[in-house]
Design a protein around this nucleic acid. Sequence first.
DNA 1: TATACATTTGGCTATATTGCCAAATATAAA
DNA 2: TTTATATTTGGCAATATAGCCAAATGTATA
Lengths: 106, 106
Amino acid sequence: MTGKEKVQYEAKARILKALAHPVRLWMAEQLAGGERCVCEFVDVLDLDFSTVSKHLSVLKQAGIVADDKRGKQVFYSLRVPCILNFMHCVEEVIQNNSARQAELAK
Amino acid sequence: MTGKEKVQYEAKARILKALAHPVRLWMAEQLAGGERCVCEFVDVLDLDFSTVSKHLSVLKQAGIVADDKRGKQVFYSLRVPCILNFMHCVEEVIQNNSARQAELAK
DNA sequence: TATACATTTGGCTATATTGCCAAATATAAA
DNA sequence: TTTATATTTGGCAATATAGCCAAATGTATA
C-alpha cells in the first residue's frame, strides 16, 4: 500500500466509519424518506438529545448528510442517496451468514 | 426504532464496521482480484504479522471473506463482491466533499 | 523426530468511541 | 426583555479498537 493509497483508504474508511453505527445507519436510512429535524429523531430513539445531535454531526462531518437551520430547528437531509444501495449488499452478507450458520448446525 | 429494528441495524453496523478501517478496506479490494495468503499482505503492509492476521479475522467474522488453509498457508478470498460496488458511492462522497471545500474557499 | 515456516491467540498499552450530564448558544414567543 | 424551545458543545467515565510482542498451534521439510 503506497503512501497515496494510504491517504485514500483512510478517507474512504472515515466515511464508512461514520455509517458504521446502528443509530447512524438507521438515521441515514430514515433521511432517505426526506429531511428530519433533530427532535424527531430524539422522540423515537430513547437517547439523549445531545447524543442524537452528535451522531448527526458525525454524519455531517463525513459529508453524508446536510443540515439546514430553519427557525429553532435544524433539519438534516441525505446528501448521497447511493449510500442506501449498499444496504442490499450488507443484507446479502447477513443472509449468507445465517445460511452458513444453519449449514454448520446440521 | 423498534427492538427488532435495533437488532437488525446492529447486525448491519457490525458488517460496515468490519470494513471501516483503511487496512481492512484495502485488503477487501485486493481480494476482489483473487485470493491472497496472509504473508502476501504482510509483505506489502508494514504491519506486524499478528496485526494483519487479526484484521483478516475481523473480515472473516463479519462474513466478508472466507479462509482456506492449504499447507502452511491460509488463503483469504472475498465472499461478497458486491461490497465493492459501494466504493464508487464512497468516492462520490469524497468528491462532493472536495467540491464543497473548494466552494467554501472561494 | 527435530526444525523451520505460516498463522493464530493472549495480553498489554495507547487511543478512539459512545452516551450521559451540564452548560452554552441561538431563535422565537410572551 | 424575559422566557421557553431546539440544538450544540465541553467534559467525563465506560467501553471498544489498534497494533505490538511473545507464546501457542499446525504443517511441511530435513
